[in-house]
């Protein structure tokens, strides 16, 4: 393979990756996963010995559900919605980073202000950051779409 055709092949592959979207049906699969995650969170109380396992499965289902909704194609997808989606990912990324940096201090400060000797300082977990970023992305995307 010549150098030029190799570059072309790589560019084509990158373009395919950039245009990747899941079919519309995945939006409903995502909603189903979110509902099942909430059901698991409630069932966790009924089975205290299996609590940690159910919580872990519920968290994974919640993240995968949000990701499915986020990546699913719209009913009316055109170049404008593609642009709005890109903007929403950029905003969600920036807000997510700020949230991950500031929120631990807020939690620590509030906890100690409410009762002395409250929680110790701890960083946010991956679930908290990822779910926050995906929720912000979906919220921003639908807001931008509504006001386009």
């Amino acid at each position: 393979m010549s150098k030029k055709s190799f570059v072309e092949c790589e560019r084509h592959r990158l373009q395919k990756l950039l245009n990747f979207r899941l079919p519309i049906a995945f939006k409903w699969l995502g909603v189903l996963l979110l509902v099942s995650a909430f059901v698991l969170f409630f069932f966790r109380i009924q089975f205290p010995d299996q609590g940690e396992l159910l919580r872990s499965i519920g968290r994974k289902a919640f993240i995968v559900g949000l990701l499915c909704i986020s990546l699913a194609r719209d009913k009316e997808e055109d170049e404008m919605t593609v642009g709005l989606r890109a903007q929403s990912y950029a905003i969600a990324f920036i807000v997510g980073v700020i949230y991950a940096l500031i929120m631990p201090y807020v939690e620590f400060g509030v906890s100690n202000a409410v009762h002395s000797g409250g929680e110790v300082y701890k960083d946010l977990g991956d679930f908290q950051v990822l779910s926050f970023m995906l929720m912000i992305q979906l919220g921003i995307y639908h807001t931008l779409k509504r006001y386009r």
Binding site: E79, M80, R148
Partner: peptide
């Protein structure tokens, strides 16, 4: 032209500049 009605509305209102293809 294969876009949504809202996109046409946004272009007409100068809220969105379409691509060369569009």
């Amino acid at each position: 032209i294969g876009v949504s009605r809202q996109t046409i509305n946004s272009i007409e209102a100068n809220r969105y500049v379409p691509s060369t293809v569009l």
